[in-house]
Amino acid sequence: MSVSEYGHYRRVFEGLPTPFAYLDLDLFDANARAIAEAAGNKSVRIASKSIRCVDALRRILASSSVFQGIMCFAGKEAIMLAEQGFDDLLLGYPIWNAGELEDIARLIGEGRTIVLMVDSAEQVEHIERIARAAGVQVPVCLDIDMSSSYPGLRFGVWRSPLGSWAQAAPVVQRIAASKHVRLDGIMGYEAQIAGLGDNVPGQALQNRVIRLLKKRSIVEVARRRAEVLEGIRSLGLPLRFVNAGGTGSFSSSRLEPGVTEITAGSGFYSPLLFDAYRSFRYEPAAGFAVSIVRRPAPGVFTCLGGGYVASGSPGDEKLPKPYLPAGLSLMAREGAGEVQTPLRYAGSEPLGIGDPVFFRHAKAGELCERFSSLHAVADGRIVAEYRTYRGTGECFL
């Protein structure tokens, strides 16, 4: 019997009050193995924003030597993870808060490896002042913009202002001139390749255009990254790592000779948005359940809760979707609601009031901001309760 069948999950979670979130460890581990294999000869840094659960992070790191280090999304999070015993922490975004930087400088002084993200001389100088006062040298990573620009279109996201070696050189030189800040690596996140689906149902023309733009962008990204690497080497500065991409760009990022590591996060849980990629498919390892509490009309069931909408520009693709049993669908006028979610049902599984409906979230880590724990399942039974960041009292953004 397939672990994805409704009857299987209903038996596993029988008697557990809804709403709850779960993590299928059999599928989670299978995704980790697939990601490790897809990385080729590169190491993989785990994107914590897509996991947001200490137990899950530990499980990934223990599963293979391919997984090395964590990319954090907030300063307080990096401090928490360091205090939990994690090391080789890279901040994925610049931080400015002096108190957080002072705590990080203290941890660096105690021997922890925490790397701060920068994309301007102003950020470097701010870090330098705090590092000087703490008597430490702080490693930093330079964020290189990987977006592609075409007439009337920016294909990518607005991140770093440094899109070429000419723009990056002054910041690199400012780092090199400092006794308290050291260039440890560079990062370039090609979001338009890693984070944009190209196999969206019902959007054949758009899919073709995105595939064409991705193909062109892959060439540009590799050229730009190589240019920056050559510029840094010309200054005689060694780099410990060169970070690229995300789960959605493994096939291209792993081919770049200068790249040493690829970031992955969403692929471990494999949320709904990852169904829209043509080049890979991972298993839906995480989800949540709500209960049917009404039957307002034949073929219609209403669940209590379920409105866990993902961030980003609004659209139907950001809504959670009913996953099991098959045959359920949201209603266009109501979607997934704050307190109730009505569903049309055309499936064969008998359903009634009190039965659970299993949903998948659109984005990976945001599921953990809604629930205090993930009920971990293996071999057809609940084997553990993994506390999310929220479940440990943490809320970083």
Rank of each mutant, 00 (worst) to 15 (best):
G156W: 01
T113P: 08
A204Y: 10
H126E: 11
A21R: 09
L107F: 04
E220W: 01
V300S: 10
A194V: 04
F359S: 13
S178K: 07
E110D: 12
R387Y: 00
I382G: 08
R333G: 10
E37I: 05
G258M: 04
F20T: 15
D24R: 06
A78W: 01
Y386Q: 01
E230L: 10
Q137P: 06
H8M: 02
D198S: 12
Q167E: 15
R390D: 08
S120E: 05
P298D: 14
G69S: 11
A121F: 02
F20D: 11
E369S: 14
C72Q: 10
A285C: 03
T263A: 10
A56H: 09
A222Y: 02
R58H: 08
R58F: 00
Y389W: 09
I35P: 11
P284N: 09
Y277R: 11
S266T: 10
R11I: 00
T388P: 09
A32M: 00
A98Q: 14
R381L: 02
I175N: 09
L324P: 04
A364D: 08
W158D: 12
L212G: 13
S373P: 03
E317N: 14
S270T: 13
P314L: 02
K214S: 06
E128D: 10
R240E: 15
A39G: 10
R174K: 15
G99F: 03
A36S: 13
T388W: 03
F358A: 11
Y389G: 05
I127W: 02
A131T: 04
P201R: 12
E230C: 11
G202L: 09
Y389P: 06
V221Q: 09
I127M: 07
R208W: 06
R211Q: 14
C368Q: 15
S160Q: 07
L304S: 15
Q84I: 00
E369G: 06
N199T: 01
K179N: 15
R112I: 02
A326P: 01
A47Q: 04
E338G: 12
V118T: 10
L343T: 01
E338L: 13
L324R: 15
F358I: 03
G327M: 00
K214W: 09
E338W: 09
L27I: 04
A105H: 08
A362T: 11
P320F: 01
A32E: 02
V118E: 06
I51W: 05
L61Q: 14
R211F: 00
V138F: 03
P94S: 06
Y308I: 05
W96Y: 15
S120K: 06
I95D: 04
S120Y: 04
G85T: 12
S279G: 06
A286N: 08
G305P: 12
I175H: 08
E83V: 02
L374R: 03
S251Q: 15
I95N: 07
F274R: 13
G236W: 04
G231F: 01
N207T: 07
L324Q: 12
I186C: 10
F268I: 11
E125H: 12
A364W: 05
I130E: 07
P238G: 03
A62F: 00
A133E: 12
Y189H: 11
P284L: 02
